[in-house]
Design a protein around this nucleic acid. Structure first.
Length: 454
RNA sequence: GGCGGCGUGGCCGAGUGGCUUAGGCAAGGGCCUGCAAAGCCCUCUACCCCAGUUCGAUUCUGGGCGCCGCCUCCA
């Protein structure tokens, strides 16, 4: 079974399940105030790949990912554009899902919105106050972090380290610099919800506690997000859950950052590429393959060179699938042994903390093998291997290309070219080839005649 | 300053105490082809530095150097 590195214990281990065969997965989703960039894409792809692989392995995955639809940045943008914050959030969310669809990412089973859970957040904060973990100041309600057992468990920072680290500018009203806000009292012109302490809105971390526990229940299996969320977001989520006496996530997973020239891609550094820009000139599968070719916890360098290398690698796979498309598929012993061996190696790599680079290497090795078999005339064996390759790629979310519809005009050109070649009229056949290439087709000669593809 | 992590061949990027030439991209040579394309075969460039443990270290330990992330905006 799958072993995953756990951020809390820093050990690679199996997920501990409440119910056999079912995995509750909560992934921190986007704050919808702008377009998704390549870094978001990596995170989403990582969990999409995890989910697909778990499903491939026979698990049911209760995949929940939230939409943060109220936040300072949303308000800021709405004010700047003279629009309502709801309009900004709704528009950005629509764009988000459209982009995710284009990326071939499965929709989470549940997509809760922060604003739909404000009442429950208020209840949670009330409990925190009752239990003595939270206090009110003139500008909000804060959690007293020092009271929480194992505060800093995920970032492995002790309270003392944190305090002395203090580049935190001391908030005027907090009792301790490490405390964090649960409820913000409204400033003029800001959206508000009612609460026992006064009108305002929730702090950032509370929503995920409420929504994950509401939808997945106590002690859910796995909580994920980007490494930049370990602190403060996830430490602070956990702190609240622990403080109210809930059993929170059993296992924590964090994906590495996307880098550009060695530096983290982020909106604040303004070195980001949006996913939509990427998709304008790249097959979405190329980016998925690029993501797969680095381990999920390593930084991933994304630039024109790495994307193009990935796109080129993808054409190798597509070429194999095309080559064997429609061939008879062997069900014999040798073919079964070949495909079983591939699957076993693939699964072993994936189960080892989602070692997708190794898993992908197995697939490429099999591609070479299948081509080699086909060259040797063992086409039905090759076809069986190719079929397995397509299945395994599917488990990673890469669909192999289907043959494209060829219209009559093009088909006629192909036929003319074959007849010219049959007559050894190569000047005509080369002319037709050029014509086809100008129409955007790649032309290949095979024993069965001209084959074309895009 | 604290915490987490990294340093592998032209590039990306796995892995292991002693045969992985991992894999991909790029480059060179060959086979195949009317010419191509695709494919196959071959070749090339590795494990940051210094000590130590060991019969043996790229892999383990210590030190050094360099880099990245987080330290309450952040996937």
């Amino acid at each position: 079974m799958l072993q995953l590195f756990d951020t809390a214990s820093q050990i690679t281990k199996e997920l501990s399940l409440r119910k056999p065969g079912v995995v509750g997965l909560y992934v921190c989703g986007p704050t919808v105030y702008g377009p998704a960039h390549v870094g978001h894409g990596r995170a989403v792809l990582t969990y999409d790949i995890l989910r697909r692989y778990l499903e491939f392995s026979g698990f049911e995955v209760q995949h929940v990912s939230n939409i943060t639809d109220i936040d300072d940045k949303i308000i800021l943008r709405a004010n700047a554009e003279g629009r309502s914050w709801q309009e900004v959030a709704r528009e950005c969310e629509e764009e988000w899902w459209a982009t995710m669809d284009a990326m071939g990412v499965l929709r989470p089973v549940e997509q809760p919105h922060a604003t739909a859970y404000v009442e429950q957040m208020v209840e949670l904060i009330e409990h925190l106050i009752e239990r003595g973990f939270a206090y009110q100041t003139v500008d909000g309600v804060y959690l007293k972090a020092a009271l929480v057992p194992d505060y800093g468990l995920l970032s492995h920072q002790s309270i003392e380290d944190r305090r002395s680290g203090a580049r935190v500018e001391m908030d005027e009203h907090k009792e301790d610099p490490i405390d964090f806000v649960l409820w913000k009292f409204a400033k003029p012109g800001e959206p508000t919800w009612p609460s026992p302490w006064g009108a305002g809105r929730p702090g950032w971390h509370t929503e995920c506690v409420v929504m994950s526990l509401a939808l997945l229940g106590e002690g859910f299996e796995l909580h994920g997000g980007g490494q930049d969320l370990i602190f403060p977001h996830h430490d602070n989520e956990r702190a609240q859950a622990v403080a109210v006496g809930s059993r929170f996530a059993r296992h924590w997973m964090h994906n590495g950052m996307v880098t550009v020239a060695g530096e983290k891609m982020s909106k604040s550094l303004n070195n980001f590429t949006t996913l939509n820009e990427l998709l304008e000139h790249t097959d979405a599968r190329s980016y998925r393959l690029l993501v797969l070719r680095a381990h999920y916890r390593s930084p991933l360098e994304v630039n024109a060179t790495t994307i193009e290398a990935s796109a080129a690698a993808l054409t190798r796979i597509d070429a194999l699938i095309r080559r064997l498309d429609g061939s008879e598929v062997s069900r014999g012993e040798i073919a079964t042994a070949l495909s079983t061996e591939l699957r076993d190696r693939f699964v072993a790599a994936m189960d080892n903390d989602l070692d997708t680079p190794a898993a992908v290497a197995e697939i490429f090795e099999a591609v070479r093998r299948a081509n080699s078999l086909a060259d040797a005339g063992d086409v039905s064996l090759a076809a069986r291997l190719s079929e397995e390759i397509a299945t395994l790629l599917g488990a990673l979310g890469i669909e192999v290309h289907q043959a494209r519809k060829i219209d009559d005009e093009v088909r006629s050109l192909v036929e003319q070219r074959d007849s010219a070649r049959g007559n050894r009229d190569y000047s005509t056949s080369d002319k037709i080839r050029e014509e086809l290439e100008n129409l955007g087709w790649v032309v290949e000669d095979t024993a069965e005649g001209t084959r074309i593809h895009r």
